[in-house]
């Protein structure tokens, strides 16, 4: 594969042939699994502890969340297309796809903020019960990760416009892409475990 060759040429030799940052990113993502795992299990533990108040399953709107989940899922596609573009040396497409990814991410975040507002109006808040608190903590941790990702995508976009992101530095897009996809798969898990799976009576 052509892109592998350019990557190999750029990195200094390592014992495994893997670039340091890439390995570091995967180790970090392995660590993040336990972070989000903890938050998800706290939610699963507390989802019915509503003290008679609203539970997530009383207030949520599956069609709406499905759309925003789909938006985030598709941002993973635009992300890989951005990577493919820079590996080809196509700066124009790179910028298009980076911006598309960031915009899809922002759409997702806006959807989340909208959803939160609706929930709060229906009486499902951080203070209504631990069921509420655990939902908001989980989703805002995820949202914070998406926001960091958006910042990094916009930085890449800025670097590209100033000519600081030549083809040889495709790895920067690749590694930020890894982070972005990870945030996406966390949402895949959250969408199933938190929204779709029926809560016990």
């Amino acid at each position: 594969m052509a892109d592998q060759a350019t990557v190999a040429a750029e990195v200094h030799q390592t014992s495994t042939g893997i670039e340091n940052t890439k390995l570091g990113m995967w180790v970090f993502l392995g660590s993040e699994c336990l972070l989000f795992g903890a938050l998800i299990s706290v939610f699963l533990l507390y989802r019915n502890h509503a003290l008679g108040g609203a539970r997530l399953h009383d207030v949520y709107d599956i069609p709406f969340t499905s759309v925003s989940s789909f938006v985030l899922l598709m941002s993973s596609l635009t992300m890989v297309l951005a990577l493919a573009a820079i590996q080809r040396g196509d700066q124009h497409r790179l910028r298009t796809w980076l911006l598309a990814t960031a915009l899809l991410g922002m759409t997702f975040i806006s959807g989340q903020i909208y959803e939160f507002t609706i929930f709060v109006h229906k009486g499902f808040t951080v203070h209504s019960s631990v069921a509420g608190a655990s939902f908001y903590i989980l989703t805002s941790f995820h949202g914070a990760h998406v926001t960091v990702g958006i910042l990094m995508l916009l930085s890449l976009f800025g670097m590209s416009t100033r000519g600081l992101l030549p083809k040889e530095r495709a790895t920067a897009v690749e590694y930020i892409g890894l982070y972005w996809h990870f945030v996406d798969i966390v949402w895949i898990v959250i969408f199933t475990l938190v929204y779709l799976i029926p809560a016990p009576k």
């Binding site: 890439k22 993502l29 392995g30 699994c33 336990l34």
Partner: peptide, 12 residues
Amino acid sequence: LRKPFITGVILA
């Protein structure tokens, strides 16, 4: 690259 990530997923 798989090892650290899959370890994390399984452990979690």
